[in-house]
Design a protein around this nucleic acid. Structure first.
Lengths: 359, 359
DNA sequence: GTGAAAGCGCTAACAT
DNA sequence: ATGTTAGCGCTTTCAC
């Protein structure tokens, strides 16, 4: 059997004794076609199983209704949710998605940008790896609209849709203090990216505001080795090792804020193995509110991240830019606030201390 | 500033006083160009910032080095891993990825197939929603190579790369029996898909082999409502509700196998709330070996799924087919085996019953 | 070794 | 209302 050649406009035109042009217009819904021939053409297209050739269409139109998405790691639950949201919204607006993964690697990101330029995607949604921006600049100056997602980048002006991690960390820290924690520790990823910086800021800000002394505060970096190929950033083992060391020297009434719910798993194990109790001895709050967090024992308090909102808004922002022909003179930055979900891991650590039958 | 028009072969040719053709051949690495001009051309291309137009190239070549991927839900950790693996391997082989999400919805899958036909992707990797196959047939008969991933489909012949869920369930069930469980229950997703069927088979097979009486066995379906928009299949609440009812009537020495680690979270909570103990009273084994499972207390035994192998193999299988020009006369089915990881949730439930100091 | 010409499938401008 | 022509950027004959 020879390869079944694809049905073209020409085939429909021939079969009906019309010109390609008429067929094109009829199927495109343009006005200059009689309803009779249009019906005829549609029927014939249906009969022959005609499928428009997007590649040819894109070549002449110069646009291909495609959005390039560059993500650092789809296995990270947050980015998985983000991809879902982006795909859903893009699909609703008629855009296809070219997915690229940078693996926290600058070189991969460069190649992704190159790919997008080759394909001439209409727009790009990028979670940038780091601070290098020259390739992104090339991309925009080649006429591609770029919207940064989740991570901010100084020295590169474009729209950004992100999350107010500072506020999230601030709220979580304040909550830990309200729950009675006096010694605070932040366990963070070891990447130099804006979400981490913002969380540290929010953490510090809350503590300063309450006048917590410097020596009662520490920020520790978990060696996630994200940049090593195939390393899972959320493998709890690293945070477990770190928490083991930490837990020995942990004073009473301490609170730990972790930059990722997976880190909390390591903390839980370390604390439990040291025969101390989450919540009572050590209050814990996570980031991400992963589905498992509500089901840990005790249930983990966590800062919920609006991945769906961010994904949707990023697509909307991108598409809005595309409809405006000219290059913008001002860029938008949107940071969605995140919401602390209080559960058992951070409830006030004192109730057991009230004397039974007292009062 | 007027839109910066993209650099074409023509621009390089003009700038060097050559023909488009020569430039094309030079950059394509063809032989019929003198080394001197080739160097000149490459330098000029570099200088002007030339980026090949993949759309134009695809139109003439009829192939675009693109693979269409249709996934039911990227937020599902298993599919997230699968996407990662597929992307990584595709990238290594020079293919771009068109990502589409079906949301367990037949209509979306149809649209995804339509999109792939429009773009004329070289091949398609599909996790099929259900049993409908007419659109997939159209896709293949239009000349697109299809490889099914993770879910099997009767009535549609093509290559398939999947997982031996039957074997996984068989091993897990045997293990539960070996651990002393006498009353067995399987908590499964409520989708009519091959992985679920295979797990039920494996479960039943192991029990039959050991002569476990029918009335000591049950298979329950968790109403995951996957098909409802935005419903998270792994939201543990449904399994929690189900397990609550179950746990009241659970005899001693029972074992629960769940089709998804997230279900185990619901079971853990229900069992704990009923003042019974995981492992001792109820042995539990999960499926998926999600990162959190090893950190539950007690640590969850689970069947590890080779998502990375499957993703990589699926791409390799697809690309292998693409290199063979003619339509195949035989299709390959590969099922990767999965490995049970035994942890504390399913250790023998009897040690505490041996009389202290006895023997 | 290089150039001229044709054409991939489609749409837009300009006829008629 | 329909047909003709041109051209998107590239590759592939086929000349020279």
């Amino acid at each position: 059997m020879n390869p079944p050649r694809r049905v073209r406009l020409q085939d429909i035109a021939d079969s009906l004794g019309l010109s390609v042009n008429t067929v094109s217009r009829a199927l495109a819904g343009k006005s200059a076609v009689s309803e009779r021939t249009r019906a005829l053409i549609k029927a014939e297209a249906e009969r022959l199983g005609y499928v428009p050739n997007s590649v040819a269409r894109s070549l002449v139109l110069g646009s291909n209704m495609t959005i390039g998405v560059v993500i650092t790691n789809p296995s990270n639950p947050f980015y998985a949710r983000l991809i879902s949201a982006i795909e859903q919204r893009s699909r609703a607006l008629g855009y296809s998605l070219l997915l690229m993964v940078s693996e926290e690697n600058e070189e991969n990101e460069r190649r992704a940008v190159e790919t997008m330029m080759r394909w001439g995607v209409d727009g790009a949604l990028v979670v940038p790896v780091q601070t290098e921006v020259d390739h992104l600049r090339r991309l925009t100056s080649a006429g591609t609209t770029v919207v940064l997602v989740n991570r901010e980048l100084s020295g590169f002006s474009c729209d950004l849709v992100g999350i107010d991690y500072r506020q999230g960390a601030y709220d979580a820290t304040t909550h830990l203090l309200d729950s009675g924690a006096e010694h605070l520790c932040l366990l963070e990823e070891d990447l130099e990216i804006s979400p981490v910086k913002a969380r540290i800021e929010g953490f510090r800000e809350a503590l300063a505001e309450r006048g917590v002394p410097e020596d009662a505060v520490s920020v520790l970096r978990v060696p996630t080795r994200r940049r090593e190929a195939r390393a899972l950033p959320w493998e709890p083992n690293e945070s477990y090792q770190l928490a083991r060391e930490l837990v020995g020297q942990l004073p009473r009434r301490s609170g730990i804020l972790v930059g990722n719910d997976y880190f909390a798993l390591g903390v839980y194990r370390a604390v439990t193995e040291a025969h101390r109790t989450i919540a009572t001895d050590v209050a814990v709050v996570g980031f991400g509110d992963h589905p498992f967090s509500a089901y840990l024992m005790p249930a983990l308090s966590s800062v919920r991240l609006p991945a769906e909102q961010v994904g949707r808004a990023a697509v909307d922002q991108l598409v809005a830019r595309l409809s405006k022909r000219e290059s913008p003179d001002a860029y938008t930055t949107v940071r969605y606030s995140c919401q602390l979900v209080v559960r058992d891991s951070s409830i006030a650590s004192s109730p057991a201390q009230s004397p039974p039958g007292g009062g």
